[in-house]
Amino acid sequence: MRGAVAAQPRGNHRRGLSIQLAVNIAVLASIYALIGCGYVLIYRTSRVLNLAHGELMMVAAYLLLATASLFSGHPLAAFAASALLGLVVGAAVYLVLMRKMTGERVLAAVLATVALGILLRGIVVLVWSAQQQYPGQALGWSNPALALPGGARISAAAAALVLTTAAAYAGLFAFLRYTRWGIRMRAAGQNPLLAAQRGIRLHGVYALAWGLSTFTGGLAGMLIALDAGLEQTMVVIGLKAFPAALVGGLDSLVGAIAGALIVAAAEVLLIHYVNPLLADVVPFLVLIAMLLARPWGLFGTREELDRV
């Protein structure tokens, strides 16, 4: 393999590079968007900021390890089972813990999610130990790289992630627009009191929102774990996706996509052309700029500000 780094013609090389950068932006934006829609779903329906989202998504990814040994030889079945378990875990978290926090101060509810996060991290160490895990290996699935036109490349897991994000958003839009439960969820988010008076069971709707949020977050967690392995720092990735959701507007799914694209593009381009060290702060700098200029986000609803 040595010496194979053949020099490409310069112009061709530039075009290849820009396509690769576009692919990188798409992948990173998909990660942020798929994680971010979990924040949006919960915030939009129940006005709670879920800071345990990273932990919940990590738990779903770890559950993949468990289901992988349960359904050995059927990677897709294991994947689906783990995603559904994520849904159940999310709904259970609402019913057991967060239900009691409705009507409490904003900070108390946020802190409850933080406490939940600490608890979940402890449980994960307890069950799976702190070391690096590879769910891909447990599933018997290797992660080949796919060549794209223009010389760009993408790993299969990352490609799956982009497609899953697209499918998840399409599904969520359809769900919220056309299904009975989706309309209930929107109603509960817009005016809980009126919704309750019209006979919508708020707790059921909120539990569903938590379930769906953990489900989508879990999909992201599992795909990241398949791409790069799994350990405790996945929590921080969950937190890094949060600025993206906020830039777009915490109560807008379209906003989550737009925010993810903006933050991802800023991050990838700054890493490439300015300084890789900036990667850590860029999402938060974009966030500060947004909060000062348009606190409710690109697509958020303005009245939200006074309600919080």
Binding site: L17, Q20, L21, V23, N24, V27, L28, I31, Y32, A158, I224, D227, A228, T233, M234, V235, V236, I237, K240, A241, E267, V268, I271, H272, P276, L277, A279, D280
Partner: peptide, 18 residues
């Protein structure tokens, strides 16, 4: 110089390859 938890290492790798 790569921040400790990074969702995707590809942007850094792209630079090294480039």
């Amino acid at each position: 110089i790569i921040p400790p938890p990074t969702p995707d290492y590809t942007p850094f790798a792209t630079r090294l390859k480039d």
